[in-house]
Amino acid sequence: MHVKEFKIKWGMVIDIDKCTGCGACMVGCQVENNIAPMTKSDPYNYAQALTKDRDDASNKLRTLTWMNVYELSNGKAFPEHETAYLPRPCMQCGNPACVPVCPVVATDKNEEGGIVSQIYPRCIGCRYCMAACPYHARYFNWWDPLWPEGMDKGLSPAASVRPRGVVEKCNFCHSRYMEAKNQARMDGEDPMNLSEGAYTTACQEICPTGAIHFGDLNNPEHAVHELHKSPNAFRLLEKLGLSPQVYYMSEREWVRKQGDNYNAGGSGH
């Protein structure tokens, strides 16, 4: 398995024991990245009337949520039952399943920092990357993005609005990385050696419990450097060899086990 390594490795360590699943990260992410709210009808498209309605947010198989919070259950009956919440951004894998399959190089892992890119104007919408990603981190624009009347004036300048028919995914709020580098240049600092907190993602910033830690996994001055080595840290589907840059932490064994049921025994694939 070939894992792409970079000098800088932006990564997350998400403390599941701190996540209440409130959903603020998901809202913050949608707002930052111009993900249109899910609307059933499209008043500007007359042909919509000929066919079915667009999907509303209750259809979880059609929603666009770069950051998605999964509910975990320990599977036991009342009163032994326990739940946990697992926020899932894009894992920014070291050996991404999605990248080599893209026929048009619309996604790549080629930038310092290790963030897996997804370029909307290049994407032809074949959805092969979605079939490849076991984390369901990739989303397709099934419909044209639509903001209810007037709401499009409050768009974020951080991400272009994607047309229908292309795939998208979390990019660790990449334009914030660009802004942080600009700020560093302005301040005469090294844009390739950002201090902790200079570059944050929207989900990390908004999380009320600080369950999401973000930083350079390779930089000893960043908190995630130590955190991701914790004995309670694990990665999703470790054994498939995708080598994600997102780590999780939990003191609960059943959570760790569910995050990676391939962990038990064997040498891995």
Partner: peptide, 13 residues
């Protein structure tokens, strides 16, 4: 209208 008109979804691209 786009591929939304089909029965495909994010799990079944």
């Amino acid at each position: 209208n786009g591929i939304g008109t089909t029965g495909l979804d994010n799990y079944f691209g």
